[in-house]
Design a protein around this nucleic acid. Structure first.
Length: 363
DNA sequence: TTGTATGATTGTCT
DNA sequence: AGACAATCATACAA
């Protein structure tokens, strides 16, 4: 990649050329500058590179006025058009044929990704009022009213801060880019008087500058994206938003768990049913059963009371169902089906034997 | 403030 | 893919 800073170099080179034209170089400036139309005697070729270097080094000591005068002298020199056309010819044959082959990078996929993300997050593009956070949080636990409004406004404030910084930085970059481009274009136009520079080359140089600045912009976009991601994870991480399930949800889950103690692994359909009843998601149901099985197994004693309550409840429910059945039909044996509706006294024995069927108990 | 309860996540295993 | 086990992070009661 070509460095735009190299653009500055030809300026000095132009001056060097001036120094080379008059006899004696910079050491005898007045010989030609006083009378531009006079024909300078043919300049003897420099004896060695040391001389040339010395001449070039001397140029830096010249004042701006002196340099301008020399430039003027060069522009008015009668040999200048001829030299210029020779330069054009040489350039035609060499530089241009080499360049222009490696042009036009494809649109950067990474930059597009960043742009899309910033747009989606509401950092770039028009400000999205009232949109707030893209709330990808798990369903509000237990169907409780979502009281995250404080966090939301905090999130929005922080996002707006990021947005503000992003735009102000972007503006700075754009301004710097345009200033630098103008500067370079002026330089090139100025230099095009002494060396052949086609408009296409200027355009190409402008593209190079824009490319450089867009790299900086990409870094800005990258870090803005990172900031947004951190903000999102900080505010929207589901673990930070944990809410206990509603009583209703816990009730429904516990009822199922204790009434299926021999096999507390609800099917997909059962999970969906429980989720619906408790106002939670199916994955929350799965999580709950996963946690419950492990915690129950780890400390059965702790859950005994709870188990008794639900066992009693299930027994009462079953009795009611049976009683209704008895009234409606012929008498039948209560609790004959599952054997999981039991009295509290038998709790431990039954659950111990029931647990033998658990998947985790196999090892 | 602290300890416990609890929902969610992650890594591993089958 | 689903289950388990460990762990995290928050909610909540004392």
């Amino acid at each position: 990649m070509e460095d735009p800073s190299r653009l500055m170099a030809p300026h000095g080179a132009g001056v060097a050329l001036q120094g080379g034209l008059p006899p004696g170089g910079p050491a005898a400036p007045t010989a030609t500058s006083g009378d531009p139309s006079s024909v300078p005697p043919p300049a003897p070729p420099p004896h060695d590179t040391g001389d040339v270097l010395q001449q070039i080094m001397a140029i830096t000591d010249q004042s701006l006025d002196e340099a301008q005068a020399r430039k003027h002298a060069l522009n008015c020199h009668r040999m200048k058009p001829a030299l210029f056309s020779v330069l054009c010819e040489i350039k035609e044959k060499t530089v241009l044929s080499i360049r222009g082959i490696q042009e036009e990078d494809p649109p950067d996929a990474q930059l597009m990704r960043l742009d899309n993300m910033l747009l989606a997050e509401g950092v770039s593009g028009p400000e999205k009022r009232g949109r707030g956070a893209p709330m990808a949080v798990a369903a509000t636990p237990g169907g409780c009213p979502n009281d995250n409004s404080i966090e939301h406004s905090d999130y929005r404030a922080k996002l707006s801060q990021i947005r503000q910084i992003y735009h102000s930085e972007l503006e700075k970059y754009e301004q710097a880019c345009s200033e630098f481009t103008t500067h370079v274009m002026n330089l090139l136009r100025e230099q095009s008087r002494t060396r052949p520079i086609s408009p296409k080359e200027i355009e190409r140089m402008v593209n190079i500058i824009h490319g450089k600045f867009s790299t900086i912009q990409m870094q800005l976009k990258q870090s803005t994206c990172e900031a947004v991601m951190i903000l999102r994870s900080r505010f929207l991480d589901a673990r930070r938003k944990r809410r206990n399930f509603s009583k209703q949800a816990t009730e429904v889950l516990n009822e199922y768990f204790y009434s299926h103690l021999s096999n507390p692994y609800p099917s997909e359909e059962a999970k969906e049913e429980l989720a619906k009843k408790g106002g939670i998601t199916v994955s929350q149901v799965s999580n709950w059963f996963g946690n419950k099985r492990i915690r129950y197994k780890k400390n059965m004693g702790k859950f005994q009371e709870e188990a008794n309550i639900y066992a009693a409840k299930t027994a009462v429910d079953a009795t009611n169902v049976v009683a209704q059945g008895n009234r409606a039909n012929s008498p039948s044996t209560p609790n004959s089906g599952k054997g999981e509706s039991f009295g509290s006294l038998q709790f431990l024995l039954v659950t111990m034997s029931a647990m033998n069927g658990w998947k985790c108990s196999q090892d």
